[in-house]
Design a protein around this nucleic acid. Structure first.
Length: 780
DNA sequence: GATCCTCGAGTTCA
DNA sequence: CTCGAGGATC
């Protein structure tokens, strides 16, 4: 099925021509840059290997495509060529060696600079005045965008200083700074304007506006990186000195430009710029190396489409295209069915990506991703790959649009969606092996019971071979069970057990695991509550519940409305906790855990802060009875001292208590339901019980950070973020996950990102690690 | 009822 | 890290 070189070359040219037309003429790229570069390189190599295939009109023989007809055409006196690309260390070393060999000089000086992701232009100055500006176009001629360029403030309209040539063409890049791009889009969104796809498209689109007044509103900027035609004057004889001169004449030149020595100097520079790429104010897609001395440049000359004395060293692409081999769904701990795209493995920003989340069914529908599609994958700011868009042109015939399966692929239960919710869930609950495994994984995780060494593989095997029905069974496992499980798993998978290979019985891993499980038996209430995996109860809610009630046995028997007394717990979360505790299976699991040796070390009386809401009025408000508002609950609470009195009362008593008849009827109807009546009675009992337990007042230890909200970001070297958080918490601080105007302090470690930026924007106090350590030292 | 803030849950790869 | 949604607040 391998095509002949001639057919392949023709096909590549077609693809490249199409892509180039869309990119340069229409400003509507249909394939990512990396894909274009890849195809061009393939064609380049093909033509090099088969010179008879090279044609004068091949994309390798020119730089772009014809200018659009709306702007006047400008012929470049000296063509604007593009650069050869290097993607690897070897290619960079080869580049340097080629020059050294040809010039017969050992270590050479190069001028190195970031390669901006913008639009290349040429600016013509006559007698020091800006007279014409043009885009690169196809390299030989471009579009006259003088009027638009005049609006770019970074471009000087006349030159400063003296000594400039009578005719000077300056080459450089028009670009949109990232911050300006963000701000522009924010405004556009606000006013319903057109949102720009990315800074590069923003710059390109802006320059090609027919109305310069529109261009003037776009936040464009400019960096000069070289010269074209020079007449009636002379320039320095090195590139770096020329840049310096340009700067003197009023052109912005990247401050990251440097002169470096030899191939190693180039590679070091690449590393250095790569390291601060995210911190730069503009997007770059690599760095450019140019032989610094002009005489050497002339000697090296050109290959057909690029100078031999310069090269662009590209960063690994952040975007790549690949194909979707399958769309599978994963079932999470709560049953959430998340579609995941299985991709043909592809390198993106340095790692091989094979999976990408599609978030939910809505997202798939929005993108219209189908199996077999070619998609663009990105690893944006963070690490997690996502599908950006679908290349519809490349959709195979007969690709069917994807739909959420009706049943869970693991357990066969129905997959359903709550009204108004985005996620679909497997309804199998704990009868679904996938949900069971995830529940166990959550239970054992570091922030929950912290069972070290109980990884996915063990959970999978233990669960599949029926050693674990529930999390409580973990504490039933014996050494023999683990060894037996391992033997059966090896048998099942057909792998040779290590015991056979080594001749010895390897039991260390099993001993370690048993020991880890044993260690986890002693735990805290907040960890235990979190580990149970109650929906809507994460770390923070578990911590609050533990702090407010202090005792597992108390919590276990509390009717749900009482949970609403904990801050940040509302009706939804309280009901969810109640629902969990109402299920006998769950109570049984808790019983089993306790019976098998799990102990909670930090049981304590409820907090005095509970005292406020421990009356009938508060209980009635918590119950969410239809038509009974907070004020009505107050009236009822005053009239009926106990829950029993209220349950026994006839409807007309509600009216005498001051309730309008509509509310009284609604209350009576609500009480008709025996479940509701029981809930009310249990609530009454719980209140009485709590009243007896809650202390009159609590000694409050004042910490130096009382009332302060602290956010930790970036990496710390002396301790983990969690440790630092715990220490600050001990001093009274509340640790938050994100920066807002309520944040009082941000501790920024190494490589802090967006949170630090936001803190700066809001003018919030920022500490570095040294300051933090100093503070901890002083207050411990 | 709208808006802001925070929490929960899900996710990738080395 | 990001999204969605619950809770608090005005």
């Amino acid at each position: 099925m391998t095509a002949t070189p001639a057919i392949r070359a023709a096909k590549l040219r077609q693809q490249l021509d199409d892509a180039s037309y869309r990119y340069h003429v229409l400003d509507e790229p249909n394939i990512p840059d990396a894909e274009y570069d890849k195809l061009l390189r393939e064609l380049d190599e093909l033509e090099a290997a088969h010179p008879e295939l090279a044609t004068p009109d091949s994309p390798t023989q020119r730089v772009g495509s014809a200018p659009s007809s709306k702007f006047a055409e400008v012929r470049h006196a000296i063509p604007m060529l593009s650069l050869g690309n290097a993607f690897s260390e070897t290619e960079v070393r080869d580049f340097a060696r080629r020059i050294e060999d040809k010039l017969k000089r050992p270590v050479l000086e190069f001028s190195a600079e970031p390669k901006l992701d913008g639009l290349a232009i040429s600016l013509r100055y006559e007698n020091g005045r800006f007279v014409q500006g043009a885009t690169r176009g196809d390299g030989a001629s471009g579009e006259d965008v003088t009027a638009n360029l005049r609006t770019v403030k970074a471009i000087p309209l006349h030159l400063r200083g003296k000594g400039w040539p009578a005719i000077l063409e300056v080459r450089g890049e028009v670009y949109m700074p990232r911050a300006a791009f963000e701000k522009y889009n924010e405004q556009a969104r606000l006013h319903g304007g057109k949102v720009l796809a990315n800074p590069r498209n923003g710059a390109a689109g802006s320059l090609r506006q027919l109305d310069p007044r529109l261009t003037a509103q776009r936040p464009l900027s400019f960096f000069a990186y070289g010269v074209g035609l020079v007449e009636g004057g002379a320039l320095p004889d090195t590139h770096s000195a020329t840049l310096k001169r340009l700067r003197e004449w009023g052109f912005p030149v990247s401050s990251e430009s440097e002169v470096v020595e030899g191939a190693q100097g180039l590679l070091d520079y690449y590393q250095r710029i790569g390291g601060k790429r995210d911190a730069l104010a503009f997007d770059i897609d690599g760095v450019v190396y140019k032989l610094d001395d002009n005489a050497g440049q002339r000697e090296m000359g050109f290959v057909s489409r690029a100078p031999r004395w310069a090269i662009a060293h590209k960063f690994p692409a952040q975007e790549q295209s690949t194909t979707v081999e399958a769309i599978e769904i994963q079932i999470g701990r709560t049953g959430a069915a998340t579609p995941v795209a299985r991709l043909k493995p592809v390198q993106v920003a340095g790692v091989v990506v094979t999976n990408a989340t599609l978030h939910n069914a809505d997202q798939i529908a929005r993108l219209d991703v189908r199996v077999g599609d070619t998609v663009i994958v990105r690893r944006a700011g963070d690490v997690i790959p996502e599908v950006v868009s679908v290349m519809l042109e490349q959709r195979p015939k007969g690709a069917r649009s994807w739909a959420m399966p009706a049943v869970c692929p693991i357990c066969g239960s129905e997959i359903v969606r709550e009204e108004g919710e985005a996620v679909w869930r497997c309804s199998g609950e704990l009868s679904c092996p996938a949900q069971r495994k995830e529940a166990i994984r959550h239970f054992a995780s570091r922030r929950a019971m912290d069972i070290e060494g109980l990884g996915d593989r063990f959970i999978e095997a233990l669960s599949d071979l029926d050693y674990l029905q529930s999390v409580a069974d973990l504490y039933k496992l014996k050494l023999e069970d683990l060894l037996e499980m391992k033997r059966r798993a090896d048998e099942r998978d057909g792998t040779t057990p290590e015991t056979v290979k080594s001749g010895k019985i390897a039991t260390k891993w099993a001993e370690n695991l048993i020991e880890a499980i044993d260690r986890s038996r002693s735990t805290t209430l907040e960890r235990f509550l979190f580990a149970l995996g109650i929906q809507h109860v994460g770390e923070s809610t578990a911590k609050a519940l533990a702090a407010w009630f202090g005792d597992l046995e108390l919590i276990r028997r509390l009717p749900w409305p009482l949970f609403k007394h904990v801050p940040d717990v509302g009706g939804e979360v309280a009901r969810s906790i109640g629902h969990f505790l109402d299920q006998p299976g769950n109570q049984q699991v808790i019983d089993d855990l306790l019976a098998r040796g799990v102990t909670i070390s930090d049981t304590h009386p409820p907090t005095a802060k509970l005292r406020e809401g421990l009356d009938m009025a508060a209980l009635l408000a918590d119950l969410e009875i239809p038509k009974v508002t907070r004020i009505r609950a107050e009236q009822l609470g005053n009239a009926f001292a106990t829950a029993q009195a209220l349950v026994d009362a006839p409807t007309h008593n509600f009216v005498s208590a001051g309730l309008p008849s509509e509310s009284a009827n609604a209350l009576a109807a609500w009480l008709e339901d025996p479940e509701n009546a029981e809930l009310l009675l249990r609530g009454g009992e719980a209140i009485a019980q709590l009243r007896a337990l809650v202390p009159e007042s609590e000694e409050v230890v004042a910490g130096p950070l009382d009332g302060k909200t602290v956010v930790l970001t970036g990496g710390l070297s002396s301790m983990s973020r969690d440790e630092a958080g715990a220490k600050l918490e001990a001093l009274g601080a509340k640790i938050a996950g994100s920066v807002s105007k309520k944040t009082s302090l941000v501790v920024a470690g190494e490589a802090a990102g967006s949170k630090l930026a936001k803190a700066e924007e809001l003018g919030i106090e920022i500490w570095d690690e040294a300051k933090l350590l100093e503070f901890l030292e002083a207050n411990e």
